[in-house]
Write a protein that binds this DNA or RNA. Structure first.
Length: 312
RNA sequence: GCCGAGGUGGCAGAGAUGGUCAACGCACUCGUCUGAAAAACGAGCAAUGUCGGUUCGAGUCCGACCCUCGGCA
């Protein structure tokens, strides 16, 4: 199994496709937004340079199958656990077919879960509880958690203590009747994890250009038709990035110029946050794509790995 | 050229009766993260147009200059 992770604009998918061609593989997308149907341009599922064919169970890009797109409808809830279930099933499936599974994506949280398991397995989100808790202030949420589980509350770091979502989730876990701490499900097979990176400035520039290209591709119209078809604006806003800022623009809350400026800033911020995961993936081989010889280095690394692959 | 208004971080924009100046937001930098993760959250960075004067002390008062925006011409 192969994992390709990296911040947006590093060319993960292109790399994954070329490796899939070489090693008889198929891709599994690890992307929390590409799972939604009809969110194509904004999530970067489509690109002008690639030949794309949508099938009901997978997409085919430049002749390579990609799984993990279009799993749910816009407006649905999708969690790491849904991803985990989908991805592990698909990995097993591909293995049976003697294909090399290649996990590609920028959602580090998902990849981390796949590699290391999740220890709150079984404690599903309680949306009813969440909607109640969402009305509470942060100090109140914290007090509540302090009451239920003082140990957990005091062990939270500065960031999490102020993070309503984390506090709500912590309360949710403690209120759940489910016995937690099931054993994680680590990936046991041989695997190579590859990371792609580049200096911030380079990635910002690349991302900005790509944004422009997607605007020309009709990204605004895509959001417009989602809204027209009845997709909830709040839900779109909560997706962040393209769908957030274009929705706000369409709804007249902000000028197009301002929306695009904010969008760029958020994309840059995403790139930074994605990079913070590299140290957590201890075994990941990270390549700087601004090094001219990174592909050669990668080939060398792969040849040393003895992946369970059948050259096609 | 004249009259008026104004120059506060990289941007935008508050406040500061002459007294440790300087909010919020954006950008940027670093970070947190285990069923919302493209989310949510934490920390950091950095400014009074220029020169001179008054004063123990000037963003604030005085003078000159530079620049910007209106109006007159």
């Amino acid at each position: 199994m192969l994992v390709v992770f990296g911040p947006t604009s590093t060319g993960k998918t292109n790399l994954a496709i070329s490796l899939a061609k070489k090693f008889n593989g198929e891709l599994i997308s690890a992307d929390s937004r590409q799972v939604y149907k009809n969110l194509d341009i904004g999530t970067g599922k489509v690109s002008p340079e690639s030949k794309i064919k949508k099938h009901s169970k997978y997409w085919k890009v430049d002749g390579i199958k990609i799984h993990g797109f279009d799993l749910v409808e816009p407006g649905d809830c999708f969690t790491v656990f849904d991803f985990l279930k989908f991805a592990t099933d698909k990995i097993n499936d591909l293995k049976k077919q003697q294909k090399l599974p290649i996990i590609v994506g920028g959602t580090a949280f998902y990849i981390n879960a796949l590699l290391k398991g999740v220890d709150t397995e079984g404690i599903a989100p309680n949306y009813k509880l969440r909607s109640v808790l969402e009305k509470l202030s942060i100090p109140d949420l914290y007090k509540k958690l302090l009451n239920i589980n003082p140990q957990k509350a005091t062990s939270l770091n500065q960031s999490d203590k102020n993070n309503p979502r984390r506090l709500i989730r912590a309360i949710e876990i403690n209120l759940s009747k489910v016995n937690q701490h099931k054993s994680p499900r680590p990936i046991t097979e041989r695997l190579l994890t590859v990371g792609l990176t580049a200096p911030n400035d380079y990635l910002y520039t690349t991302a900005d250009k790509w944004l422009k290209a997607r605007l020309d591709q009709g990204m605004i119209q895509e959001v417009g038709s989602l809204i027209k078809s009845g997709v909830n604006g709040v839900w779109l806003d909560n997706l962040g990035l393209e769908y957030r800022w274009i929705t706000r623009y369409i709804q007249g809350q902000i000028s197009l110029d301002d929306a695009l400026e904010r969008l760029k800033g958020d994309i840059h911020g995403l790139i930074r946050r994605q990079k913070t995961w590299f140290p957590k993936f201890e075994d990941m081989k990270v390549f700087d794509i601004t090094n001219s010889n990174w592909r050669q280095e990668l080939e060398k690394t792969i040849s040393l790995q003895d992946l369970p692959i059948s050259h096609s």
